[in-house]
Design a protein around this nucleic acid. Structure first.
Length: 353
DNA sequence: AAACCGGGGGA
DNA sequence: TCCCCAGGTTT
């Protein structure tokens, strides 16, 4: 084994993390954990893993779940297409593959929501197959230890780091190596690295050349755009309220929201008025307007303001709008910005509904 | 290749 | 505020 692999596994023998999905060889539970861990910190995914693995102990339980039940358990974890792909793949495994999880790298890679990282993780952790994982930790560790300045978000960089990771993967211990390099990246070789206590200091090019703060190199920058949502809380004398399921190819797919008017800036009530009248085809009154809420997404800033309105006549509402008792709101999954608003409402005991 | 998809935590 | 996180899919 190379000095790098040897030192890494020695470090890991002392510092490895104990996590619930490391106590199983069940490919279903490993798959479930890996999907939740995509672009998500271990500490954040942990309670979600406990809840989902308890609610759906086998792939068939997950396959037979309702979309709303699954989304409610996923609510707050983000990247909701992961839950959609998870559900579709569970049905595929349970009913097309007769409950048998695929057991080769190429077969695993075919699953929806599974890319090169996740396929390598499942292949190595569940079946001990020799495929190196390449995630954010691996990019960081390899770029620093070997002083590689190829941008990690370029095609060339992905190829180079994948080749390097597989080169150092010991054929007899692929699972240990994969776990070790990710634990090392998460604990020792963090974005702000802990070089003073690092047992790989002597072989690290970035440390020698004082480049630990500049590596790894990324070439693309995120451009943030702003969106403005005006949410309408439309109640009637029966204390019913309209909600709508987001189905478009857009953010928050499969979550619910109140009827929404989106514009290119935040409107005053006077400016918003004609939009509402046109939408509902009736004359309305705006009873109450919330403070503006904002939510930061990775590439969006979402502004939302909530208007409680009453209608002078029965509004014309699209068929897909659901008319539900206000007390049932907690049964539906909502994006963070709406659950925050609802929490504020109940805390202030302002019964808008 | 570039754009898009969330939410939380650290600095 | 900005960056990063056990990335993947779509265009």
């Amino acid at each position: 084994m190379s000095p790098f692999t040897t030192l890494l596994l020695q470090w890991w023998a002392i510092h490895q993390r104990q996590l619930p999905w490391k106590n199983t060889q069940d490919p279903y539970l490993i798959w479930l954990s890996e999907i939740m861990l995509q672009q998500t910190r271990v500490e954040q995914a942990l309670p979600y893993y406990e809840r989902l693995s308890a609610a759906f102990p086998t792939v068939k339980h997950l396959a037979d779940a309702s979309t709303d039940d699954l989304m409610r358990l996923w609510e707050g974890l983000g990247y909701y297409s992961r839950a959609r792909n998870l559900h579709a793949t569970a049905k595929h495994i349970a009913y097309q593959l007769d409950g048998h999880f695929p057991n080769t790298y190429q077969q695993i890679l075919q699953l929806k929501g599974v890319g090169h990282y996740t396929a390598a993780a499942i292949a190595s952790f569940a079946y001990n197959l020799p495929h190196a994982v390449v995630d954010g930790n691996v990019f960081r560790v390899l770029s620093r230890v070997f002083g590689i300045e190829t941008p990690i978000d370029s095609t060339k960089g992905k190829q180079q780091f994948t080749q390097l990771a597989n080169q150092f993967l010991p054929p007899n211990r692929p699972a240990d190596f994969n776990q070790a390099i990710m634990d090392f990246g998460a604990i020792q070789c963090t974005p702000k690295p802990n070089c003073d206590t690092c047992s790989l200091q002597n072989i690290c090019i970035a440390f020698e050349q004082k480049k630990t703060t500049t590596l790894p190199i990324k070439e693309k920058k995120i451009v943030k755009k702003e969106r403005f949502f005006h949410y309408l809380l439309i109640t009637d004398p029966q204390q019913q309220i309209y909600i709508n399921r987001r189905t478009a190819r857009d953010i928050w797919q499969h979550l619910y929201e109140f009827p929404c008017i989106e514009t290119n800036k935040l409107l005053t009530n006077v400016e918003l008025f004609p939009h509402i009248n046109q939408l509902l085809q009736t004359n309305i009154a705006i009873e109450n307007t919330s403070k503006p809420y904002t939510q930061q997404l990775t590439h969006r800033t979402v502004h939302a303001i909530f208007h409680h309105i009453t209608c002078r006549t029965t509004p014309t509402t699209p068929a897909e709008w659901q008319h539900i008792p206000a007390a049932d709101l907690s049964q539906y999954p909502f994006p963070k910005i709406i659950t925050q608003f609802l929490a504020d409402q109940s805390q202030q005991q302002q019964i808008l509904f």
